[in-house]
Design a protein around this nucleic acid. Structure first.
Ligand SMILES: [Mn+2]
Ligand SMILES: [Mn+2]
Ligand SMILES: [Zn+2]
Ligand SMILES: [Zn+2]
Lengths: 148, 148
DNA sequence: TACAATTTTGTAATCAATACAATTTACAAC
DNA sequence: GTTGTAAATTGTATTGATTACAAAATTGTA
């Protein structure tokens, strides 16, 4: 399977947002665009380490912070406190499996979920999270419940 | 101002959920019911330390975990990864100020915000978060922007 | 009182994230 | 191509909330 986006295009996207397209920055953004699993920093790091043996984890942190500050990616908070990243910052919700940690996209029906309580507040971001058990994990739990 | 709920009533609530009402457990739950600021563990700890000088922070962690597992309280994820606690687990959204960290209740208009993407998932919890700047902090930011 | 179960405490360990100085790289000027 | 400066990258030390776990204290009961 071919990548949906070329390295050159990724570089252009970065330039358009005022970020100089270094090799690491291109690879990180491209990884997020091609691997829609909402990876953690360490996941991205270990994947890119294969291609860039001198890579430092700090560079991943720096890059993700830059991309996020320009709105090119999205941060996802998790119950464990670890941050996960999403290369598609369009408005949508996230489901997280409490057993295996998988994060799945869920679409939102309402334009806004909120009524009163926001008077005087400057809201810059909205996030909707679901927690529970993914298909695989809930089936495993059923089986282990049957046994006990 | 009198507490909205007596120690005895708080004990009854705990017993009703199968939690033995020790002094610490009563105080922690009561603190959350009377101080609706969505405090962090350390905030609760420092407050109760005045009344219980031998108190250990581990006891706060233990108690909050027990209360949460029985659905008596609610955990709130924050961008910094720190967990904040809410004694009122009824369905509502939370706004967090990125400058001062204040967390404010916001009511939800929709019964559910979600459409497709949840097929096969066992959803146990839904959470809606807003981020931005509270009234005080956004006013301060305006003033400092004027100067620069 | 004696005993077991539960609760509480205190300390060490974990781990993602940050701070920051050192090193390397990119790139323009000469 | 050499030099110089800014930017990018690296590596290490530190932070800070949370967890793990064993010791100590408390509770309830026989
Ligand atoms: Mn997503
Ligand atoms: Mn609340
Ligand atoms: Zn799962
Ligand atoms: Zn504020």
């Amino acid at each position: 399977m071919q990548p949906a986006i070329t390295t050159g295009e990724t570089g252009d996207r970065l330039r358009a947002k005022g970020i100089k397209p270094s090799v690491i920055r291109i690879k990180v953004l491209q990884y997020l665009l091609e691997n829609r699993v909402h990876p953690a920093v360490d996941t991205i790091y270990r994947a890119l380490l294969k291609e860039i043996p001198t890579l430092s984890k700090t560079s991943i942190y720096n890059t993700l912070k830059a991309l996020n500050s320009k709105g090119m990616i999205m941060e996802i908070m998790t119950p464990g406190g670890e941050i996960r990243y999403d290369g598609y910052p369009a408005r949508h919700a996230h489901f997280m499996c409490l057993k295996c940690g998988a994060i799945k996209d869920v679409s939102l029906s309402c334009a806004t979920c909120l009524t009163h309580g926001t008077e005087g507040l400057k809201v810059t971001e909205e996030a909707v999270y679901l927690k529970g058990y993914c298909k695989k994990c809930s089936e495993k739990l059923k089986i282990s419940n049957r046994k006990s």
